[in-house]
């Protein structure tokens, strides 16, 4: 069985945010919820200033704190060693969010995509509204991606958490995670750590790597190279 990991080449990454945006697009993610995100750091004093942009996502930890914390096994490791979430088992206790050292799990406190249920036009009869647009297309969000629903709730309902699934629905079709696919810099590589010839292993061997918060013992599987 595979052990999926991602390598992010920070030398190639230009911090454009395409991963953040396309992740929301692919996975029908509501506003204020982020499966893929980033942190930035500005260090130094003018004119010797260093600016870093580091993309983040679920680390699909080998020793996942969220899986341990979940009281109902809703958060689990699958046969590809991905950390996945079963929306039908989740009780919305948010223990996983507390346990995750990377803040990559989000809770649906509200019925999602309320933006597309707002029926107030800025010009009555003249402009559309979120509600009219979404309803006109028969979807909860106009650009709803139905492929997402093949392995996870297409849109996660109110009361449960949600997180990155490494695009398991795309992996199932032999496709890369969408952030990898849509990165214009080619900075992301997904692959199997158990396969010694995989691109991820070659990159890790060639460049060495860093992980986020390795000291907390979660064994994260998002590796940053060429930082």
């Amino acid at each position: 069985m595979a052990r999926y990991a991602m390598v992010i080449d920070l030398h190639k990454c230009v911090g454009c945010g395409a991963c953040d945006i396309t992740c929301k697009n692919e996975n029908n993610v509501d506003r204020d919820i982020f499966w893929a995100h980033h942190f930035t750091r500005t260090a130094g004093v003018f004119p010797n200033v260093k600016y870093e942009h580091v993309p983040t996502l679920c680390n699909h930890c080998d020793n996942a704190a969220c899986v341990k914390a979940c009281p109902t096994k809703a958060m689990y490791k699958d046969d590809k060693r991905l950390t996945l979430h079963d929306p039908d088992k989740c009780i919305g206790c948010k223990s996983c969010m507390q346990a995750c050292p990377y803040d990559v799990i989000s809770f649906n406190a509200k019925e999602p995509h309320g933006f597309w249920r707002d029926g107030n036009p800025v010009i009555p009869e003249g402009t559309a509204s979120g509600k009219e647009t979404a309803e006109g297309l028969g979807q909860k969000i106009p650009y709803y991606n139905p492929e997402r629903a093949t392995t996870y709730a297409g849109i996660r309902p109110k009361g449960i958490v949600e997180k990155c699934t490494f695009c398991d629905h795309r992996l199932a079709k032999g496709e890369e995670p969408y952030c990898v696919f849509s990165c214009p810099a080619g900075a992301r590589t997904a692959g199997d750590l158990d396969d010694p010839t995989s691109q991820v292993n070659l990159l890790l061997a060639q460049y060495g790597y860093k992980q986020l918060k390795p000291h907390v013992g979660t064994k994260p599987k998002v590796y940053y190279i060429r930082y």
Partner: peptide, 24 residues
């Protein structure tokens, strides 16, 4: 075969809830 983040945002322009839908 690559686009920058701008291109993706175009979808939300297409489905902008505030689009003018009729002549006024």
């Amino acid at each position: 075969g690559k686009v920058c983040p701008r291109a993706h945002i175009a979808i939300q322009q297409l489905y902008d809830p505030d689009r003018v839908k009729v002549p006024m």
